[in-house]
Design a binder for these strands. Structure first.
Lengths: 117, 117
DNA sequence: CTTTCATTTCAAGCTATCTTGAAATAAACT
DNA sequence: AGTTTATTTCAAGATAGCTTGAAATGAAAG
């Protein structure tokens, strides 16, 4: 991931509505949600939801596909992973302190409670 | 890390000048750099550099301390790590696909070349 | 106590982003 | 063809963020 795309991705995440959309889409993964469902989930008008979903799709953090009358948005975990990799590698030069702070490098289990930090 | 702080942090990273400052500060870690040095490193006027450094400091991604006439900025790796943790845990619910995409969960060595991805 | 150096603060103008509601598109159904 | 449902696009106004250069602060040195 290059700098311009990373900046666009960070910009996408720097908004409450979009962050909440993303969280809803994580819960709904890998199936995704219709634009209307996302709109309801975050309490935004259809037009406003469309605006923010378009931004998330532009940056590649989510994908969009039409299914009959509905448009289904789904999170792209690979893109999210690439963004994390950008922070870790490009920004922080793989500095151990950064990796340590997010509970990595000490075991493989993704969600072991209490083991992070 | 809570949502508002994460949003502010993403906002900080969503800017070329600040991203480059951060990279310079990673290289200069853990000592840090004077505001003037950062200013030169990214090719920004003192006033512009001060504006962006203040933003980075506000969000806690960098720290500032006065040393005689100079002000020394240093990256806060813990804060960077907390932001990565926010993406991984709060945003992505520790989804394995995200962790996999950044070369984690397959070995502990932080910077082993060729082993990531 | 004035000068010098490093940095910040301020005010102005500019650009980008967000919100709102109305109108347009797209697909299915009658 | 006309209607309904789902979503996007558009235009307008509001808010936030960026850049610039000048003025102000803070700290050391003569």
């Amino acid at each position: 991931m290059q700098e311009p795309r990373a900046i666009a991705a960070f910009s996408s995440l720097a908004n409450q509505t979009r962050l909440r959309m993303l969280k809803a889409l994580v819960v709904a993964a890998p199936d995704g949600m219709t634009a209307g469902a996302v709109s309801e989930a975050v309490g935004a008008s259809p037009s406003r939801a469309s605006f923010h979903l378009a931004k998330l799709a532009d940056t590649g953090l989510v994908s969009a596909r039409r299914q009959a009358r509905e448009i289904i948005y789904a999170i792209d975990f690979a893109a999210m992973g690439a963004l994390v990799a950008f922070i870790l590698q490009d920004c922080c030069s793989n500095h151990a302190a950064v990796r340590a702070c997010c509970g990595l490098d000490e075991g493989q289990s993704p969600a072991k409670p209490g083991s992070q930090r």
